[in-house]
Every structure is written in C-alpha cells, then in structure tokens.
Design a protein around this nucleic acid. Structure first.
Length: 489
DNA sequence: ATCGGCTCGCGCAA
DNA sequence: TGCGCGAAGCCGAT
C-alpha cells in the first residue's frame, strides 16, 4: 500500500498478510496516546479506508509494568479521557479504553481483537519493555502487524548510526531533516473514515475485557483498588492531549521569548514543561513545531543554511525558538537515535570507552559521602540543594532540567561505584519522573557519567575525567531562592 | 569579570 | 595530518 505515511516510519513486525475477511483495522495505541498528528493512527486509517473498514482504537493500560503507580496511571487515564472525548461520535472509529484490573487481566485481549482485524497497527518505541512486547505480540497475531514511528521529526530508523555527541547528531540532522519535514502527520487522521462503519465489539469480548469509558467519565476509577504502587501519588499536573495543548499555548504565549536566557533558572519558570506529555505521546513534536511556526510566522526553508552543527542559525526562527528546538529536536531525538540503534543503551557498559576507563580507574577512590537508595529517595543528604531537587522530583514528578544534571553528578559522587550510581539514578528517575522510562531518561542519566560529553581535566577523585559539578557553584550561578524555599521540606 | 588549561573524537580542509 | 569545536564545568591567575 502506498499511502501518506513514509515507509521509513513503518516496520513490519511479522510476515503475515492483511486479512480482507476481517471486520476492521485494529490500532493498538501504546506510546502515542493522542488522536491528532499521529502517523500510526494515520496508517491505521489508511488501511481502513483501503478496505472500507472502520478503525478500532485499543488504548490499554496494564498494571504490571515496572514502576506502575498511581502517578503514571492518573496521567495516562487523563489522556484516555481526552481520547474518549475526541473519538466519540466520530464516524468510522470505535475507541476501546481498557484498564487492567488485575495482573494478567489483559492477557489475550490483543489476540482476540486481532483475530477479527484485517491489519494491526501499533506504535513503535525503542526502549523500556516495548520492543520485546511488540515482538512477542507480533508472533501471536495472525495478520499483518506493523509498528509505526511517530516519535519525532527524524524517523528513528532513518539511520543505523549512533552519534557520540549532540554536535555530530545536530550536523547530521541539519542535512537530513529537510527531506523528512516534507511529510508531516495529518492533523486529524480520523477524518478519512467518513462513510466507514464503526467497528462493533462483541458482548463476549466486552464481558471479559470491559470498556473503561464509564470509569473514565461518570463513575470514576479508584486507583486504590488497582495493584500498582500507591506510595507514588498522582502528580499535580493533569495529563492528556488537552492539558498538553494548553501547556504549549501557555509556553508560546509567555515563556518562549525568555526561554534562551532563563530556561536554566529555576525561579524564572521559563521551561516548557512539555516533556511528560511528549513522553506519553499526548503531544507531537510536529504539532509543537507547527505551533511555533504559526506563532512566529515562519516557514521551513533550509536552502543555503550552513550544516556545520551550530546550535543557532539553521532553523531560521527567532533565537529563542532555536534554543527550544535544540532541546526538542536535537537533544530529544538524539536519545531516540541511541535507543533505536543500541539495544544495550540502558546498560552501564554502553558508556563511551574513555568514560568507562576513567570511572574504572577511580572506582576505589574514597567517597566523601555514601548514601543508601532510601536516603537519596527521601532527600535526606547533607546537601540542601540536592535534597530540594529530589523532593521536587518525588513530589511533582518533575525535576528542573539544570538541577537534574547536578542531581546525577552527586549521585555518582555519593555511591560506592558508578554502576551503583546508574542503578540509583534509573530507579529514582523511573519511579518518580513523569517523563521517566523514556529514551531520554537514559541519555540524561548517562550524560552525568560521560555520554555525549568529553573528558574534562583536571582529573578528580571518583569522577576521573568525567565533568564535575558542585552544589556551591550551582547555587552561586542560579536563581534559587524560591525554589529552595518551596522544596525545603 | 574573564581567560586558559584540563582532554577526546569527529568532520573537514589541506 | 592538523585544526576547530563541542549541554550547561572547575579552578586559579589576571
């Protein structure tokens, strides 16, 4: 089939063919939990239009994945409510939100729904348990199954290379992005389904796997009844595509102009706050870029722009937007590039050679302080700035982007080994951060141990040639008065 | 306040 | 083969 979704974004997961005797196209939404600007949903809609079928959208939330908690459940459920609203009364589409009530409750659901599908389309995502889950599912599904990449502007499988620095990846992007930007996801892919019959679910399926729609709206869902970690409480910020859009608009309206100068200042509130929404797929990079373009009256035109990897001057937007796009595109997609091409990207051994070597050489240096995971977790170290950052993470599910670096550097300094430091960072980040369990969780954590960085002298205890940071210097440099007050306990 | 040295790997010019 | 340059650093010298 030749549709509008670029082939480079489509990965066949099995050798099966489409089944024209099916009743619908199944879209299994796992990572791009949105109904707009979504290549995977668009692909499902293309197949459906070809067969004259409707699309069945299955958005499931299981309860047994690592670090499942009230916090992540709440955020995902907010998103499901938005998707329910967005898809109800739309022709040609049926939305099935499913919330697993007990471990294993969802087992068999995908295969059951796939047994009546012509094609199964799902989201491609290069880390956490998703790649293994997709492979396992594809072997049990008897029709053609495809994973579609709607992660970012650069298709994650467009290169098999990894890049050792943001600089080299940026230079590559400056050459390769323009062609990919010619194909952007449709705003509303479901609109192709006018005239297609909305799939109807059988009583027996719904008896076994109840539709969670009423739980999402009128009845409400009691998280306390689910077997997930209740000690990680819901975050204050609301999840979902609507909240994401509101946050984007607020960012463009009052923060973007100050972004380049103030984004590293905790008290200035100039960061976008979009990363949790990006992580759960509640918003798309393409939509964000489109909104920036509209906001600035900018159109992509890269003719004659230097492709030397410089951080400014390539996009041709305002300086503020370029600073933001470097985060959103260069840095975010750098992490996806690593995850897509290095199956070991979560492991300590995936660090660059010079970093492994220098950390090894300093592995038996005495540590100035040693803390257990529990002391770190509660924010009870001797360092009030570090404690504040950890308390923000634990309480809000967010950690300030600059302080996150200091946070990780100090964990390296205060644990018995760099391997243990990585373990502590991964545990705390993935347990508490709304944007955890993401390719960029590992970029950020391993950056603290040398990934994407270069050696710095002079060699210091514990760190060796790894870039060193101190809380005192950080406090001197940053506006932190309100921040320290807010998270003082 | 600002500058250089610390140090590695890559792409590009030569 | 050499040169420039890079997520945000640190420290001591000027």
């Amino acid at each position: 089939m030749n549709g509008a979704v670029p082939e480079i974004r489509i990965r066949r997961l099995n050798d099966d063919e489409p089944n024209p005797a099916g009743r619908y196209v199944l879209y299994w939404m796992t990572s791009y939990r949105r109904t707009r600007f979504n290549f995977a949903l668009e692909r499902a809609a293309e197949w459906a239009a070809e067969f004259g079928f409707g699309v069945l959208v299955l958005e499931a939330l299981r309860c047994d994945y690592p670090w499942a908690s009230d916090r992540f459940h709440r955020f995902v459920l907010d998103g499901m409510q938005d998707n329910l609203e967005a898809l109800s009364d739309r022709p040609g589409v049926t939305y099935l939100p499913y919330v697993e009530a007990e471990t294993g409750g969802g087992r068999g659901l995908l295969e059951e729904l796939a047994s009546e599908a012509a094609v199964v389309v799902t989201d491609d995502y290069p880390t956490f348990f998703i790649p293994a889950m997709l492979a396992a599912s594809a072997s049990r599904v008897q029709v053609r199954m495809e994973a579609v990449d709607s992660n970012g502007l650069h298709p994650i499988y467009a290169t098999a290379k990894t890049y050792p620095t943001a600089y080299s990846f940026r230079r590559y992007l400056q050459k390769s992005l323009p062609v990919h930007l010619e194909r952007v996801p449709q705003t509303d892919p479901v609109s192709k389904l006018e005239g297609c019959p909305a799939p109807v679910l059988s009583e027996s399926v719904l008896r076994r796997w109840p539709d969670a729609s009423t739980l999402l709206t009128s009845v409400g869902l009691d998280l306390a009844e689910l077997p997930v970690d209740h000690s990680v409480e819901p975050a204050e910020i609301r999840g979902g595509a609507r909240a994401a859009k509101a946050r984007l608009d607020a960012f463009l309206g009052s923060k973007l102009a100050r972004y380049a100068e103030d984004r590293n200042q905790p008290d200035e509130d100039a960061a976008s706050g979009l990363s949790p929404y990006l992580h759960f797929g509640h918003i798309s990079t393409h939509e964000i870029l489109g909104s920036i373009a509209q906001h600035e009256g900018w159109r992509p035109d890269f003719e004659g722009r230097p492709t030397l990897g410089k951080r400014t001057g390539w996009w041709g937007t305002s300086a503020a937007a370029e600073a933001f796009l470097d985060q959103l595109v260069t840095w975010r997609e750098l992490g996806f590039n690593m995850a897509a091409n290095r199956p070991d990207h979560r492991d300590y051994e995936s660090l660059p050679g010079w970093a492994l070597e220098t950390l090894e050489q300093h592995s038996s240096d005495p540590r100035p302080y040693l803390y257990s995971l529990e002391v770190f977790e509660q924010g009870l170290t001797h360092d009030e700035l570090w404690n504040a950052a950890q308390r923000q993470l634990r309480r809000e599910g967010i950690i300030h982007n600059y302080l996150r670096m200091l946070w990780g550097k100090k964990i390296l300094e205060w644990t018995p080994s760099p391997r243990e430091a990585a373990r502590v960072m991964i545990e705390l980040n993935n347990r508490y951060a709304l944007d955890g369990r993401d390719p960029n969780s590992y970029s950020g954590i391993y950056w603290c141990l040398g990934r994407y960085d270069r050696p710095w002298g002079p060699e210091r205890p514990v760190f060796g040639k790894i870039r060193y940071m101190t809380s005192a210097n950080t406090a001197r440099k940053l506006h932190l008065r309100e921040y320290l007050e807010r998270y003082s306990s």
